[in-house]
Simulated assay, not measured.
Amino acid sequence: MITPSTEKNETAPPPLDATPARALGDFIRAHRERLSPLAVGLPPGPRRRTPGLRREEVAQLCGVSPTWYTWIEQGRPVSASADALARIAVALQLSRAERAYLFELAAQRDPAEPDPAAQDAPAALLQTVALIGAPAYVLDRQWNALRWNPQAADLFVGWLDGENDRNLLTYMFTMPRAQELVVDWETRARRLVAEFRADSIRHLNDAPTRALIDGLSSASDAFARFWASQDVGEREGGERAFNHPAHGRLVYHQITFKPAHREDLKLVILVGSE
């Protein structure tokens, strides 16, 4: 007789505490247990066997059913809207950092947070570009260059010099000079599209992003083909080589930074390779 522990073809499911839903439930429960009834205006009451608030009390404060609240604490795969999560954050008196962490665990955008696209880029970030001795530039969420230094303008002919469209994807896929400048253009271009797909997932249906994708799909067969491949990749550093019309072959190592609280922006630096 074969016992379950000796069967090799059966794949055991991951432990419950390994799931995002379980992590969300654990986080909510921990903060419920550390919040006293008096802190929310409730009497302590006799025979309180659990620390902090009861689940039923939090559910009442949030205006949700006790069953639904219990399920979310238990890590069950229930749907949690941004509005419901916001009410839980208020009921549990979460700090700003704790509230942000709650929404990250739930993979939801906090409705109380302003849309990053509607905010100006931090002045200090833009000023930093001028202080960097290597080619450097700042991209917004659609990968338009917001600021760049003279070294970047000198390197990226046809993009950051003169009067050109400042979108990186538009440059790569519609400007012949990009194919001349970037070594192994097709590999880099394919990778760039995979990185943009991953980077834009949260605002893929926003009008500016949609217009950019649709426009490039019509203007460039290569972009349309790469986008249709559904490849997804993280924006990586590493070696970047260029065949510059004035300086010959140049090799850099790319480093990308995301400012705290503004992950829709990127500071890209190209450090010369020795």
Rank of each mutant, 00 (worst) to 15 (best):
P4Q: 14
P14G: 11
D206K: 02
A23T: 12
S65M: 10
L85K: 08
D115T: 01
E180N: 13
P77C: 06
Q60W: 13
E56P: 08
E274H: 01
R177T: 15
P4K: 09
M175R: 13
N167T: 05
A246Y: 04
A211D: 07
A39K: 11
V138W: 01
L35H: 03
E7R: 04
E7Q: 01
E186P: 00
L250W: 09
P77R: 05
V251G: 06
E195V: 08
P259D: 07
T50M: 01
F257T: 08
L53S: 10
E186A: 15
A100Q: 12
A123L: 12
A21M: 12
F242P: 08
W148Q: 02
P176N: 13
E163C: 09
G238R: 09
A198D: 14
L192I: 02
S81V: 00
T19A: 11
F173Y: 15
L192E: 14
Q179P: 04
P150Q: 08
R87D: 08
A107N: 07
V40E: 12
L131E: 09
A198G: 12
F196D: 11
W185C: 06
A178L: 13
D120H: 07
R48G: 02
M1E: 11
F223W: 10
S36V: 04
I201P: 00
Y252G: 09
T187Q: 15
G162A: 07
R34W: 00
Q254N: 05
L53W: 01
W227Q: 07
A100P: 03
I269Y: 04
R76I: 01
L61E: 08
S220C: 03
N164Q: 15
A100W: 04
A91M: 03
L38K: 06
L181T: 11
S217E: 02
A107C: 02
A241M: 11
Q254D: 03
E239C: 08
K266Q: 11
D110N: 04
V251A: 14
V157S: 13
I28R: 10
A145T: 14
L16V: 13
L85M: 10
H247G: 00
